[in-house]
Design a protein around this nucleic acid. Structure first.
Lengths: 266, 266
DNA sequence: CGGGACATTGATTAAGATCAATTTAAGTGG
DNA sequence: CCACTTAAATTGATCTTAATCAATGTCCCG
């Protein structure tokens, strides 16, 4: 399939920052706070924030004040279905997949969160997480104890509304996915998926035209409710239609308008 | 298809209560409060609660204290996509469908709420409702001004948690629907749909074995992402497998275990 | 009773799943 | 750094399921 001349340097889906930077310890601003995406602006003492490790169970080492973080390495899980719910997490850098497994063993990918996304909402109503949150690459998350968020929202009204909205927002994504699964053919599904990634890349300050997918074709297939071969063929057809250049996980969008149209269902 | 001997009397999906009962004006208890399903127990002055009409825009006639209600007749909408968000609604009696229409004109049914369900959550994050909520039969809803709920949740902690949970709970339904749409064949989808209805009927105190569907085959098709003919054939096959007796919208579940297995994806 | 919406059934076509074989890319350890 | 091993991705051939096209049947409701 190819079609890449001399592969140009491509920005990673999200760059992994060094929490305690090796360079001059200057006051590097929090990326999330800067873009307004942070759920707890001001609380965070970036970049000197403490990092929780797997060893201490993801528990913040500093009980008072500052937000702590947790690193999750590629393939590892931030939390697993059935774990007791305690924290929300905001993805600071990296990317993940949310995997649902039902009683019959069917696996489904519910979403591919990237930097800025709020994770763990699936645990709120039952008190136990409903999904596995698995890192697609080494990732960094901010730990937001849910009790703190609730307390905070009781203290001030804007926070209360913000929390409600954050929780409600997740359903938007699911509603859209439902329309995709219920009403679109394979080519439209893949176009929709790529359009979504592209928009989120742009929102994160990266190129919306060229990027590297962090998930396998099998993950995409389980996200879009199709088989891996069908995903592959859809990529091929989009390439033949001169909409994409594809080389493995390396993508370049050649005709963004056509992609948007297709992804919206014509 | 038939197979009903002498059709026995069947309970309606939900009985429409007379808000100001014609009988002796005794203190009939609120059904929702009795089952713990009410979001605002105590606030409600049932059964003398004022009923808002379409005429005054669904606005509560009594500003102080008591919860007001709104009747929605069959085929009419409680709210429409794009309307400014102000209230949540709790369905007291009746049933509805939530319809999403995307930019390409594709229609999708997102859910079929019945008595006890919370409606309007789709308006929280953007400030405008995302769906049309359409009554499948004459229905009665309790109006819950969202600002009141937020204020209430600031006043006491259990309410805050309850509100968060109520909002988060909706995603559970969507997550399950996504698995159905992504991974099940037509027969399994219909089985899942019927199993879900059956469970909710039971939860509402009605027979889980025999009931009347309030939605058309077209609605079911748009809910399950299939064509109306395929829905019909799935019903027929379930009948041939001796799992169901079907006669139009009148259903009797003959083999609940088999239905559950099928609906869970084997 | 008659008319229109709703539902079922049949015949055919098309889209995607499945089965099977390569090809390509990514690690791993010598 | 390269050979080796495995995982991931693509492609082809065939089969199955659901969509589509078309006709008929049934049930409400006025």
């Amino acid at each position: 399939m190819e079609n890449f001349d001399a592969s140009p340097p491509v920005p990673p889906m999200a760059r992994m920052p060094r929490p305690s930077g090796p360079g001059p310890a200057s006051p590097a601003p929090c990326k999330l706070a800067a873009t307004g995406a942070c759920l707890v602006p001001g609380l965070c003492r970036n970049p000197k924030t403490a990092v929780a490790s797997r060893a201490n169970g993801g528990r913040p080492p500093s009980p008072a004040g500052g937000v702590t973080r947790r690193i999750v390495h590629r393939g590892q899980s931030l939390y697993r279905a059935g774990d007791a719910f305690a924290n929300l997490y905001q993805l600071y850098a990296g990317s993940m997949k949310l995997r649902i497994t039902n009683s019959a063993g069917m696996e489904q990918i519910a979403s591919f969160p990237i930097a800025g996304a709020l994770l763990g909402l699936d645990g709120i109503d039952t008190g136990h997480y409903a999904c596995d949150a698995i890192a697609l690459e080494d990732s960094l998350t901010c730990i937001l104890p849910f009790a703190d968020l609730v307390a905070r929202s009781r203290a001030d009204a804007p926070s209360a509304l913000q929390l409600s909205r954050a929780i409600a927002q997740e359903t938007n994504h699911y509603r859209r996915l439902i329309m995709v699964l219920a009403g679109m053919n394979s080519e439209e599904r893949v176009a929709h998926f790529l359009q979504d990634i592209s928009e989120r890349m742009a929102a994160g300050g990266y190129s919306s035209r060229e990027f590297v997918l962090k998930m396998t074709r099998a993950d995409i297939a389980r996200y879009l409710g199709m088989k891996i071969e069908t995903v592959s063929r859809a990529f091929t057809r989009l390439h033949l239609a001169r909409i994409l250049d594809v080389r493995g996980r390396h993508l370049r969008i050649r005709d963004p308008d056509a992609l948007r149209r297709l992804g919206a269902g014509r």
